[in-house]
Design a protein around this nucleic acid. Sequence first.
DNA 1: GGTATTTCTTAAGATATCTTATGTGTTCGT
DNA 2: ACGAACACATAAGATATCTTAAGAAATACC
Lengths: 215, 215
Amino acid sequence: MRDEKTINSYSGFLNIKALLIVSIETLNLHFNEYFPLNAKERDELDVCFTQRSIKRRQFILQQGEVCKYFTFVISGCLRMYAIDKNGKEHNIQFIAENDWAMDLSSFYSEKASQLSIEAVEPTTFLQIKHDDVLHLYTDYHKFDHNFRVIIEQKYIESQNRVLQNISSSAEERYEYFLKQYPNLANRLPLAQIASYLGITPEFLSAIRKSIVTKG
Amino acid sequence: MRDEKTINSYSGFLNIKALLIVSIETLNLHFNEYFPLNAKERDELDVCFTQRSIKRRQFILQQGEVCKYFTFVISGCLRMYAIDKNGKEHNIQFIAENDWAMDLSSFYSEKASQLSIEAVEPTTFLQIKHDDVLHLYTDYHKFDHNFRVIIEQKYIESQNRVLQNISSSAEERYEYFLKQYPNLANRLPLAQIASYLGITPEFLSAIRKSIVTKG
DNA sequence: GGTATTTCTTAAGATATCTTATGTGTTCGT
DNA sequence: ACGAACACATAAGATATCTTAAGAAATACC
């Protein structure tokens, strides 16, 4: 009996440990798409990153707090949003598997963030603390390099989105969103997508109807 | 006589040379805002960067060409824009003194750019070629670091612009633009600002009138 | 399993923004 | 100095998008 119980809890521990290893390996593979890490750099991932899971509607950052972590999503989906002077929320970004979530501005300035980051699905992620990020930047050229490339890609994406916003109708923006994030489209409530596109849920509902009618 | 002429042309040469030195020093000061360069890194600027000047309406990149340079503006102003399927131009960005202009996507992929970059004022700038950029990245941690920070700031700006676009009226966006780029507002034709805001020139004209009337 | 809550749809009237057209003052090229 | 191109303003009617309100469908909670 006693043995059994010991084995059970031990194997439970093993599972958690195993999941963490899988997550770190996911992150390692992510970096492999840029400049692959060597053994020592790979070991830093184990040291610096911690795994957490949260439920839908829980936050990893709330407006007014300082953003203290870089977050790498393993599974699930987050949304980053701002609240305007009328109390309305506006989705700036969705962050799903293999993507990074953080408010860079708050992270580096260490001042209160204007943004919130909330789970729209149960989400598992890895986090690295502010000081560890700086440590990796300082001691490893490769982390500086890889993060440069990652941010460059996010910058390109953001610029494309600006272009969409200033040049396209709501319907065109929606269709662009469907093409760019085909899997997110199914997973997210209509109201969240509407907020991302900068339109009302009612209007997105009308757009969907008009697309179905046409096609 | 002969002496005089020699002196004149020599001093003309000196002026050009002097201007280049001033420009490189401007760039060096720009990097000083991040991680200051040491002597060797500073020397690389002289080797890698070339100065050019263009008139209003001339291009440093045209849609269909590959973006082969990073461009650092010393004086004047550029606009980066895309052309939509109806042939309309949409300003993605203005690039004035101490700012960088490039289509990162085309630059790294070495594929044809969708974007054009044109001078809206007579403009003087420094350029560094693709291979030299990669050389600086590879051989100097500090250039990787500095460009990471520069791109991060541009990414933050771009995200703020996305937020503005999805959350604010045209009038609010215009007022935000005035606050953020007070000097550009005077220098740029109304139509260029309207294109940047994603509205028609007629409507921006109406907005200006309504602001004057109110205030 | 049933009720509360969230999500989505629909539609009418209001508002923001665009389109088209026209006039006028300004700048540019020769 | 002249005409051509540009820049800006104005206004009327058209279109895109929002607001409000209500009901139906789906999902979460006890």
